[in-house]
Amino acid sequence: MRQIPPDYTKEDIEADHLQDQYTLMFGILGRRILGELGTDGEQALREAVRRYGADRGLRDRQKHLEAGCKINMYSAFNCGAGLPGNKRTHSIRFQSVPEVHTSQVLTCPMAEIWDRYDCFDIGRIYCEEFHFAYYNTYAFGKAKVNLATTLTERGTEYCSFHVLLNPADLSEEEKARCFEEYDEKPEEADLSQFQRISAQEGYRFLYLRLYYYMAVTLQEYLGEQGKETLIHGLHELAGVVRDYIREEEQTPDLCYLENNYPAKMDTSQDPNWMVYQEGSARELLQTEFCDRLMKELQI
């Protein structure tokens, strides 16, 4: 069992577990996909991450528009709608204004988990594809994303973000939506909508979508072979998660899973699945992972 920092609350511990499991899901499934399907599998995996990034970018943009936020780099990095917070990620910010955000991420628990579980190169794929898709979709396809170093590369010491959105690249309508100085009647943004969500709620929705797009693109690109690999991956994941949980909790029960695992064990109880229904993704997660995990943990 890892050491818990002295200032940690029960919620902090749960948030760490949730993030680790979300990260691990991608790493273990991704490793299986590349191992069994080679470059074709990698193609599907990269596309999955891009779709996931685009999904998140689109939703966050919509949330910001509804709240009256301008769609720019200041909003993207400061106005909520992002990842649930966690104490293990440390960063330094150099500038964060509407046209440019420059910062470095100095520690990243996701990179550490991928390294610990021997899927560092899978994490690399995530970093490479996700941020481009997310910020570009968020900013009407017009952001310039620069992420020249990441902690998912050996020998680098920080992730280096330099993300730009320039009015010169935008249409007149986009300019007004992105920058106050181009809007004849700018509204006051209602930031109260962006209360910090619970780690359970946040990571559950992230996990669902990332897994979903992996399941869908695998089958879309590789048919039955992709589906078989997904099933193998889910079986492997169940074993890895079982071991992780047993390290952390002597007698895990359903309540423990509800608070520490980012997927409901009865997936039919999660209303977020209503929008994500292709490729039997939910059913496969249920039968090949959730049911297995419950059995392995004797719950």
Partner: peptide, 29 residues
Amino acid sequence: QANLSKVLMGPFDNHCRFSIYYRPANLEA
């Protein structure tokens, strides 16, 4: 994918850092 995260021309950096990625998996077979 082209990345230029540090820029000598800018106010913060003492070097430029380029990282370009070109993946076979992102091309058609």
